[in-house]
């Protein structure tokens, strides 16, 4: 069960999107959230939808995986769309009852908001589906580098990031083990009233904190024994490379922006 959680949602593959530089994918998925604010009529939303669909086709990953990304937010989406449909007036009124009005304006707005949710989620799912966690960590580190100018501790942060990523699976296993050990001694997780449930957590959390602490101490000792003296002045083993396809991707997003500005 835990295996799926550890690695994020990454699905190995060899499409054009998989081979892009992770920095480009990261930046462009930020950028996409920005340009979606430009969309304000049906042409722009349709265009963005088509663009997203083309991007999804290029990944060669089944659409089902993308739809799964929408699921955690489904209640927020339905609630938002419903509120928009029922309480915004304007345009032709189809049906009304007190303050509740279903109008053409409301329906159209509801559809737009639904599209906005789905497109944003699809794009960020695309990023996590096509990029291995470690490359993403490298990309984040590389993009944080300019912050060194304002004395932001880039190396320390990058190191913490890789340590955290490396130990998520280990701690996940550890949590399961401690839970099973406590279950074997009679603790019921998620049973009884709220206070009993809370009490059950106690024998889980403290061992977790203590074992993380011990692990960290061992790790630090081992790092220092291997000559770690702080972030500055070290070389890199994993190097990211920027290619033609990355430039083309940026160009494509620039074109999309231009088209959006024209269509709106």
């Amino acid at each position: 069960m835990s295996n799926k959680l550890l690695l994020g949602r990454f699905i190995p593959g060899d499409s054009i999107v998989h081979r892009l530089d992770p920095r480009v994918k990261l930046l462009m998925s930020f950028y996409f959230v920005g340009i979606i604010f430009l969309a304000d009529n049906w042409q722009t939303y349709l265009f963005l939808f088509l663009f997203t669909m083309v991007a999804i086709l290029l990944t060669k990953i089944k659409l089902g995986f993308f739809i799964k990304g929408v699921r955690p937010l489904i209640w927020l989406i339905l609630f938002t769309v419903l509120l928009q449909m029922l309480f915004s007036s304007g345009g032709t009124v189809y049906w009304s009852w007190g303050p509740i009005v279903i109008s053409s304006y409301g329906v159209v707005n509801g559809i737009y908001i639904f599209m906005r949710f789905v497109l944003i989620i699809f794009m960020s799912t695309l990023l996590t589906l096509t990029t291995p966690p470690l490359s993403l960590a490298d990309a984040i580190e590389s993009l944080l580098k300019p912050l060194k100018v304002i004395h932001f501790p880039v190396y320390e942060v990058a190191l913490m990031l890789s340590i955290a990523l490396r130990f998520v699976p280990t701690l996940m296993d550890e949590t399961e083990k401690i839970m099973n050990a406590q279950r074997a001694r009679g603790v019921d997780f998620g049973e009884g009233n709220i206070f009993q449930q809370m009490r059950a957590i106690v024998p889980l959390l403290i061992p977790l904190f203590v074992s993380s602490f011990n692990r960290a101490e061992d790790l630090a000792t081992a790092m220092e024994a291997r000559g770690y003296q702080g972030g500055e002045g070290r070389s890199k083993y994993r190097v990211l490379s920027w290619q033609l396809a990355d430039n083309l991707t940026i160009l494509a997003f620039a074109l999309v922006t231009v088209v959006l500005v024209i269509l709106r």
Partner: peptide, 8 residues
């Protein structure tokens, strides 16, 4: 970004 939490 990495573990793919909910939303974006």
């Amino acid at each position: 970004l990495i573990l793919g939490g909910s939303g974006t």
